[in-house]
């Protein structure tokens, strides 16, 4: 059977993208969500369980700092005390205060250069899946480009290792204006579990100015699409 026929017979697998629409099952791990517990001990227990200090307990309420969360899932599976509530969404991107979006000319034509600054491979794989039939980022006019000189947006993954610092800065300088930087994943957002440390920085913003942060470990393709659409404001960003 020819590839053409095989492709046609597979049918259309692309899913409609709509901001705030429910995600297909398994497309995103979701995030722990602000939870009110019956006892203060349950809230404190979840704060103690969190290895990166993403959960903060105040009385019987535990709040979540998504930027620090590494999806260790410990607050989803607890022995004895109650688990955090999880919200299965993907609108995770948030901008730094007062960020300028790119002008309308970039709508439907956004060129993206990916910089691996110490990633484990999961974020990169989710970025690779942007162009698979399910997400098909091309239809939003999002294109991965091989050189920063053609790029409007820099997608940084990884905590920025010492040996990638200079390379990341050089790539940023090589981009034409206007340009935006998006930090993808817990490592690039806050250093994750690797930084700041002897060989890792505390994420992309320690080397280049970051405009949009996408927390998650890793953020699923839908979250990355949401962030990239937010760069040129064709979809609103939500915290």
């Amino acid at each position: 059977m020819s590839w053409f026929l095989l492709g046609i017979r597979s049918g259309i697998r692309t899913e409609r993208y709509a901001a705030n629409a429910p995600a297909p099952a398994g497309a995103t791990p979701g995030f722990p969500h602000e939870t009110r517990f019956e006892t203060t001990d349950d809230a404190a227990g979840n704060q103690a369980r969190c290895p990166t200090g993403a959960i903060h307990a105040q009385g019987d309420v535990a709040t979540v700092n998504r930027d620090r969360c590494i999806h260790c899932m410990r607050c989803a599976s607890c022995d004895g005390s109650a688990a955090m509530e999880w919200k299965v969404d993907y609108n995770w991107a948030h901008g730094t205060d007062g960020v300028d979006t790119l002008p309308a000319a970039f709508h439907g034509s956004l060129h993206v250069r990916v910089i691996d600054a110490g990633d484990c491979g999961a974020c990169l794989n989710e970025i690779a899946h942007l162009s698979d039939p399910f997400y098909n980022a091309h239809r939003h006019g999002i294109f991965i480009t091989p050189t920063p000189r053609h790029a409007d947006v820099l997608l940084v993954v990884g905590p920025v290792t010492q040996q990638m610092r200079a390379e990341l800065a050089t790539a940023y300088e090589a981009m034409p204006e206007p340009k935006r930087v998006v930090a993808i994943g817990a490592c690039a957002v806050s250093g994750g579990i690797f930084g700041p440390s002897v060989m890792c920085a505390a994420g992309a913003s320690s080397v280049v100015p970051v405009d949009i942060f996408v927390p998650g470990c890793p953020p699923p393709p839908l979250a990355i699409v949401h962030a990239l659409l937010g760069v040129c404001e064709s979809k609103p960003l939500e915290r």
Partner: peptide
């Protein structure tokens, strides 16, 4: 691959089996 990632997440909660 994506279908398998989703199957994994539906069972374990995480697409890459972190925290399992």
């Amino acid at each position: 691959e994506e279908e398998l990632l989703r199957v994994t997440a539906q069972l374990t909660g995480h697409r890459y089996l972190f925290g399992t």
